[in-house]
Design a protein around this nucleic acid. Sequence first.
DNA 1: TCCTACCCCTTGCATTGCAAGCTACCTTCC
DNA 2: GGAAGGTAGCTTGCAATGCAAGGGGTAGGA
Lengths: 116, 116
Amino acid sequence: MPQNPQETTNIKAQMRKGVLELCVLLVIDRGEVYANDILQELRAAEMIVVEGTLYPLLSRLKNDGLVSYNWSESKSGPPRKYYSLTAEGRHTLQAQSGAWKELAASMNALIKKYSV
Amino acid sequence: MPQNPQETTNIKAQMRKGVLELCVLLVIDRGEVYANDILQELRAAEMIVVEGTLYPLLSRLKNDGLVSYNWSESKSGPPRKYYSLTAEGRHTLQAQSGAWKELAASMNALIKKYSV
DNA sequence: TCCTACCCCTTGCATTGCAAGCTACCTTCC
DNA sequence: GGAAGGTAGCTTGCAATGCAAGGGGTAGGA
């Protein structure tokens, strides 16, 4: 059943692996954001993401020194972690952005060559 | 050290996850091929692949009924498995190709929005 | 016979998206 | 004041999958 929606969803889920980190870096680069901001942005871009994916990713980015955060009070609810990119994070963003463009170019060339 | 070649290689390796299956389907769709043909095609397209990646992938595609193969004698060396797509394989190829285009569109929109 | 090239395959590991569930804080309502 | 609900952050366990490393079998030449 390769055509039903479920199957297509899984395919896209697999493809998202590896580019989610780039997406998150892109959003954080815009300015200070906290987790829910990122979730909303990525959902709007049809890069479906859930909390259980994002929090470990943010922790990993923090441990790798690509992002930093500071606590900030909220008017309605518990305090939030507002993230921003470090210099190394901006560096990595550039590298991943380039890697994406190369991958996309390779893929498009392949698809064109075998013209589906 | 997000800029050294090693790091960039890892980034691209992560991104390749999920699209390799599509690449292999694309190549097999061209006509009957065996493992080394596929490896050469994908390396030429800068989608670096090694045997340890390709063989399990081919086995999975076979188990999923997306490809079939027949043994064929070789002039120089052991017999080869020549692969071809099944009807379901062609179906999946279409689906994955569509999924790729959607993902690429989402990514490019994101990159453009935050214009790196 | 031994060596090289070719071909297929398996095992074990690391990464990572995700479902599911938990804790804690703040506001609102009774 | 206490309970309920929403907000925010996080953890655990699982599944998928690329890859390094290694194995074994066949053909042909030195």
